[in-house]
């Protein structure tokens, strides 16, 4: 018992540390930057939503099916949340799950024809079907607001600003509560995604990537599992979408376009998808690059284009391939012999 407890702590302390740091981020930001800290907090909230998005995309790729419509699935979550909150005053604890369920339904419809294809045709097919959904948003003024989209999406009412954890940026725009809501939901989603990755379903999906013929022979219905993973990934993408819709307060079809999708691909390609940690590294490093290139934002696509090409050409496995090397390096540095 004792042993397994210590194992548990050993495995989870890095994650726990990170969560605690994130939990105190509003206080830290306020201390360092005063009221300006709030804008950094917005970045951090978006970052958390992006982490969930990237992690859900990584889940999608476990069967080897890369899609080009993941941003559309996220947009589905954002739109549903926005519509429910704006027109019907539905509170956040209902909008988020309802949006997720709607997105799962849409994912299912998209996955049905797509599951007939593999590899490249799947990739392109998802692109076209995603565009189809985007045309619907553009075309229907009710409820999607047409090409102007929806604005004035009400923030979730999570109590008075500063209710939680004594932060108060003393502003009507205070987002510290939304930040905490996001943090909780993101941790929840990331834990679920982690468990899913190591579950028997995760193994089945990985084995489909490895050898789908063999999977069929041992009774795994490959088509059904590929549709399932599409829906599950859509579920988590929708969570990210809901969070971003609340943050942005306004959405339109262009928020979920191909350029955004390419940035998502850059995150996971740079980080890698083989392990759970790849997308986290990818989002973190690329968000950093994104912030650092703020002064020359007209060159940003060029910079990211170069990053994407060079990581595909020179480091096809993504940054995650460095993890074992780095840990080994640090272990050697500390002087502990590696036990294999």
């Amino acid at each position: 018992m004792l042993k397994s407890n210590s194992m548990f702590i050993k495995r989870w302390w890095p994650a726990a540390t990170i969560i605690i740091v994130f939990a105190f981020a509003p206080q830290l930001f306020e201390t360092f930057w005063g009221r300006m800290g709030m804008y950094k907090l917005v970045l951090l909230q978006v970052f958390l939503a992006n982490v969930v998005l990237a992690q859900s995309y990584r889940l999608m790729t476990t069967t080897g099916d890369w899609t080009l419509c993941h941003y559309i699935l996220m947009g589905m979550g954002a739109y549903t949340t926005a519509i429910l909150a704006k027109f019907y005053g539905v509170p956040f604890y209902l909008t988020i799950p309802v949006a997720a369920i709607c997105t799962v339904a849409v994912s299912f419809l998209i996955a049905l024809p797509l599951s007939r294809t593999i590899g490249f045709a799947f990739f392109i097919g998802s692109f076209a079907l995603g565009e189809f959904v985007r045309y619907i948003w553009e075309k229907l003024h009710f409820p999607f607001g047409g090409s102007r989209g929806l604005s004035n999406i009400p923030r979730p009412e999570l109590g008075q600003s500063g209710d939680w954890y004594f932060v108060d940026f003393s502003s009507r725009m205070d987002i510290s509560n939304l930040y905490y809501g996001t943090l909780i939901l993101a941790v929840f989603a990331l834990v679920l995604l982690y468990r899913l990755d190591t579950s028997r379903f995760g193994n089945a999906w990985k084995s489909i990537y490895s050898d789908s013929e063999l999977c069929e022979s041992i009774g795994i219905n490959v088509t059904r599992y590929r549709i399932l993973i599409f829906c599950v990934a859509g579920f988590f993408a929708s969570l990210a979408g809901s969070l971003l819709a609340y943050q942005w307060g306004a959405i339109d079809p262009d928020n979920f376009g191909m350029i955004e999708m390419v940035y998502l691909i850059i995150w996971v390609v740079v980080g890698g998808v083989k392990t759970y940690w790849g997308p986290l590294i990818g989002v973190a490093s690329m968000s950093l690059v994104f912030e650092l290139t703020r002064p020359f934002d007209e060159f940003r696509p060029l910079i990211f284009g170069v990053i994407l090409i060079s990581s595909l050409v020179f480091m096809p496995g993504g940054l995650e391939v460095l993890i074992p090397r780095t840990t080994r390096f640090f272990k050697n540095l500390v002087g502990t012999k590696e036990v294999s």
Binding site: K206, S207, D211, L214, S217, I218, G219, V222
Partner: peptide, 19 residues
Amino acid sequence: SSEISKLGVVRTFQRAALF
């Protein structure tokens, strides 16, 4: 095929198929 294997008819491959 996956259904047939559920019914109890399971095949192996001529190649070494494994994960």
